[in-house]
Design a protein around this nucleic acid. Sequence first.
DNA 1: GGGATACTGGATAGCGTTATCTGAACGCGC
DNA 2: GCGCGTTCAGATAACGCTATCCAGTATCCC
Lengths: 346, 346
Amino acid sequence: MSKSAKPATLADVARLAGVSVPAASRALNGGVRGKQSGSPELRSRVEEAARTLGYSVSPAAQTIKGGRANTVAFIVGDIDDFGSATMISGVMHAAEERGVSVAVRTTRDDSLRELELLTQLRGERHLAVVMATSRTTDAAREAAVKEQLVVLRDHGARIVVIGDNDLGFPTVTVDNRHAASLLAEGLADAGKRRFAIVSGPSGEVTALERVGGFVEGLAERGIAVDEQDVVHTEFSRDGGYRAVEHLRGRLADVDVIAAMSDAMAVGVIARLRELGVSTPADIEVTGFDHVPMLGDVLPGFSTVEVPLERFGGAALELALDDGDDLEATIALTATPIVHGAPLARV
Amino acid sequence: MSKSAKPATLADVARLAGVSVPAASRALNGGVRGKQSGSPELRSRVEEAARTLGYSVSPAAQTIKGGRANTVAFIVGDIDDFGSATMISGVMHAAEERGVSVAVRTTRDDSLRELELLTQLRGERHLAVVMATSRTTDAAREAAVKEQLVVLRDHGARIVVIGDNDLGFPTVTVDNRHAASLLAEGLADAGKRRFAIVSGPSGEVTALERVGGFVEGLAERGIAVDEQDVVHTEFSRDGGYRAVEHLRGRLADVDVIAAMSDAMAVGVIARLRELGVSTPADIEVTGFDHVPMLGDVLPGFSTVEVPLERFGGAALELALDDGDDLEATIALTATPIVHGAPLARV
DNA sequence: GGGATACTGGATAGCGTTATCTGAACGCGC
DNA sequence: GCGCGTTCAGATAACGCTATCCAGTATCCC
């Protein structure tokens, strides 16, 4: 229980070990290039001094000296949604293996905040910036984001974007469209014919891809979806809950309400129950994302397993391992789960 | 699309504005104490230069200069569990309001890593360290953690612990015990008589509190729980799943399986279904924590709503707003939800 | 044994920022 | 009109660290 008011610095370590400060630095860092690590004797003396003093390097000082932090910024819309939390977990795992830390930042799904945040990041000198916020078809917004990202890249940070986009940086994608179409086909093959779709906010790229694929899959089986049976809403439980209102008059004519996220599906189910519609007996509700818990409590639930956990690892791979290939893309595979059974992909 | 290889520094700003570097610093920081902020004219010149160059301060340099980062470390076991994600979300909200950032670190529920991590934190000079990992009754482990925390405190960091503990630092707690007892009473009042309990790892303080309260509540209604009907397992879905095996022979004699977390409850439910036991008809399964989604898909599910989102805010309040009162404690209230209805507390 | 070559470890500098000090200019009261 | 206090902004130093340079010693080969 030392009462020293200040944490030990390298200078303290050096003094205790009786060497110069740079020598101590070299000893602890194992020598940078070549093998300037100092003699074994000096080295162990320094190591012991460090242990004795409970020395821990100051990342701030290293950042300032080296011009770059040993850090990856991970930008998400909001953290307390299942998808983000899972991605963050994945990226932290992957980062740990590479010995870097992750700085998680949220935009609160506010595009103004998103831009401010990106400006702020300039001063933070991260190794890389991973954008995991949702991309839209709003050209002005996307251009503004791109502009910020270009500056960061010019400053030497690697940029990686998660999800389909036109920003022109290395990207991690998942085949939302294809998986959605397979899900639709699977449901059609199970005899379902009349579909309503609960989509995300209009202009949200992921939602567009999923709905597009789903509609394609249905078309493949000769099924059409009426324009008015596609509801746009927030990508959340409450969004799904509210979406049911828009379908209120047509519920009797629908076999399946396909929500484009599990969270929305839950909201739909909750509202349907309130309305006295039983699921899946009267109407089957399907999701997208595969929140693991749901399969346990909703037997036979259909959804698409999106490997969110792997997004982070893939992003770091692009950010840290690759060369300067701006076109680099990692495409992940999503697995449709129809009535509880994962669909074998060919 | 500037092609400057380096981010702008304060020196660049000062040069463009035609002032000295310290003057620029003062202008941008609005003058520290008193109001050494420079003349309005100089000030706006500097601000414009900063805007032009897209300047953003380097937190690393500020940290090194000021001896302290504008940062709170938030230590959790693992991030991809519902509880941690929710707490993190809460702490990030609260931190944002106070203008500090949050550095999330995970221990992967490994007590060795926990100690290493705490040592590492010495170099990082955080304003505060919030421990949100699970506390145990393992005296040696707790002492080791305390030792690390004491050093950090001596170095000037505020320490806050979440959850019941004997570490001797400001603490945020929730009345797990009382809420559990109310839940038990509510279930008993609904006519349930024969209980089995799925608890967390033995020695985990939160699990002990919850089980203790639950058993007390039952005793209040004249119901006893056989020692062998309390199963200790991991605090997770899979833990709950496996716990059912230990109760296998006695399932016919049980009305309620009370799991001490929602995640475990889900695992229990999944396993029971596989065994052909229907819930809640044959056996009712209850949880703890209140994962919001579950109430929607499991109508009438009983659990306890723990205000996880508020933990972070309370922790920051203790860490940043209060004086040096080491005994400071914020006690939050949990709300039992019996068969879907929140229990009014008196 | 002499000169070239390796290696070792110390001295120095510099990263971007802000607290403190210093000097200059200005306004004010008598 | 002179001394005083006040404001303002520049100069300097310092935070903790590591890359670079340099000098000294050990090693080697002929």
